[in-house]
Design a binder for these strands. Structure first.
Lengths: 197, 197
DNA sequence: ACCTTACTAGCACAGCTGTGTTACTTTGGG
DNA sequence: CCCAAAGTAACACAGCTGTGCTAGTAAGGT
């Protein structure tokens, strides 16, 4: 085989073009032709790396979830327990331009997954992963005494998940109703009570 | 003018067909032709009542929000204060088949509104309306002593809104992660604390 | 040097889309 | 009765879509 490295690089380039296209007009705009144009390639070239459009979309989604996962893991470095929890949760919210970009694209796929079983499977896996992460997080906070001892991890994780999803959804779809700072503050207040001043 | 009443009825029929089409495959499937077929009409007939596809979609969205609004108002009849609050909030969640249908369609429009300024305006109005309703609700609960006196209505309404949106979003996009009963219970626990038993 | 393999490009096809236009049918007021 | 208004239908057009297919280019192992 020849130039295997270029293959990987090309696939990354194309996926990046998919993201840019998605960002501009949603999945409806992510046609093979438009993605190819965005990547500066012919449609035939794109189809050489991704046999079908569904394959291209699925790969773009998986790449995206890898990116988000990596970001969350990076936020784990924060030493202070409370700050670490908030930082990791914050990566799941569109609080910065980069995460807003990523989560906007993610929203696109989640939405499409309601009618696309192949995407639904991937999205479902991601959702379960996030849920387990929240369980883990809540249990940790209870053990370290940052949440009351009687806390029900199931219930608390579910509520936290809904709140995070809701904040993300509102920031992405109804800007002006909520700004990023308010969302961050709301999350903190929900987890640890109102901030002492 | 002739048969003005039939005109109204026809428009309602067509909008109902839009909803059914949307339900099946999202806005991507709600083409003029498919809606016409669903309504048992020719495409020309549909275009006689709605000059353009955008107009058709906008009208379908407004009709939907009227329907939801009416439902919420109907839930106001409940005499008990707490039950009334929960009933009205419950109408904003896909807890029954009928509301799940409606909110699924609503989600479709909200999503599209991210790239469609005309829809964005309508959706933005709806979001502000809901937010004001939540403010009103929270203030009422505080006045009647069902929420602590120190409650900040702004903050509480915002959090409540995010939770409701998050629960709705999860029920619609990630069934299996959460069931309807859990969502209802979560909402109640969030507002009034864990249910006494 | 050469030839297999990886890659790039472009065209063709069938199918769908929104919309404009034109013609036909029904209907109710005068 | 009759005719203008209202509603229905069908076709045409240009443009976009995913995908199949074929031809051309470049590169590295032998």
């Amino acid at each position: 085989m020849v130039r295997r490295i270029d293959q990987e690089a090309r696939r990354r380039d194309i996926v990046a073009a998919v993201w840019r296209t998605l960002e501009r007009g949603g999945l409806a705009e992510a046609s093979v032709r438009k993605v190819a144009a965005e990547a500066g390639l012919a449609t035939g070239s794109v189809r050489h790396f991704f046999g079908t459009q569904a394959e291209l979309h699925a790969f773009a989604l998986r790449s995206l979830s890898d990116r988000v996962g990596e970001r969350v893991r990076r936020a784990e470095a924060e030493p202070d327990v409370r700050r670490r929890a908030l930082a990791m949760l914050g990566e799941l919210l569109p609080l910065r331009d980069d995460t807003a970009r990523e989560l906007g694209i993610w929203l696109e796929f989640v939405h499409r997954s309601r009618y696309d079983p192949a995407l639904a499977e991937i999205v479902g896996d991601q959702a379960r992963e996030v849920r387990e992460f929240l369980h883990h997080l809540v249990r940790g906070l209870v053990e370290l005494g940052h949440l009351p001892a009687g806390t029900d991890p199931e219930q608390t994780a579910a509520e936290l998940g809904a709140l995070v999803d809701g904040l993300a959804f509102e920031l992405l779809t109804a800007p002006g109703l909520l700004d990023r700072a308010q969302a961050a503050e709301l999350l903190e207040a929900h987890l640890f009570g109102p901030r002492p001043r």
